[in-house]
Amino acid sequence: MQSAEILSPESQNSHSSQNVNSRERWLSVVIGSAVAAYGLSRRSIAGITAAGIGAGLVWRGASGYCAVYDALGLTSVPESNHDTSNVSVPYGRGVRVEQTVTIGLPPEEIYTFFRNFENLPRFMSHLQSVTVLDAKRSHWVTKGPAGSDAEWDAEIINEIPNELIGWRSIDDSQVDNAGSVHFKQNPAGRGTDVKVILRYDPPGGVLGAMTAKLFGEDPAHQVKEDLRALKMLLETGEIASTKGQPNGLPHRAKLRERLAEVVR
């Protein structure tokens, strides 16, 4: 199954060449400079991280090469020689995410919880709902970035009880995607490694995903946080949160905060 995730050899060897198209290169320089300036103007960890991301974007724009794209195995320079007729997410397109978490339960319990897809919105913050249609098919509705909702039907394409579940979106879905989750028991009571691999073609193309990333919608981060939430939910019965707790911000500042959220 790994081989399906790997790109064609040409694009793999593209370290010195370009994998970012010209419109994106231009945008990268503009956004990157802004982010770097913003980041450097703040002395916090987030600021330093932002400055780093910003600098990376400028380099990406200037050079036409993006290490992030390369690491994910994708490119926004059009390629013509791929046969894309029969897969949810054609090779070399979309976003690929792989994240693992250890959960202190036997694989059976985690598998059973996960296999009931209607449980997924309990820990996946961007999922609105999943409705199980029959043994193989389900209907997924998301809360997309910046309020852009999406929905699709998915079918299970591969399944080994207590070991793995693989699924993909069916035909003309708004967000073409495919995913799998793998459960591997560790020795000596060290729980179960739960690995999720996702590939998807986000609305707005690859740049859409990059832009979303800048606004805190980084898909790898998202999957990682969702897995963290799954671990918390299964190990403790709740997901750690401080939402709604008091603080001493004056009323006006709070209002400004809420306004900023609405505008976003």
Binding site: T236, G237, E238, S241, K243, Q245, P246, N247
Partner: peptide, 15 residues
């Protein structure tokens, strides 16, 4: 640091 009047805390999670 200042002593402020803030809303009372509430139960957020079941534990």
């Amino acid at each position: 640091v200042r002593v402020e009047n803030v809303p009372d805390p509430t139960i957020i999670n079941p534990h």
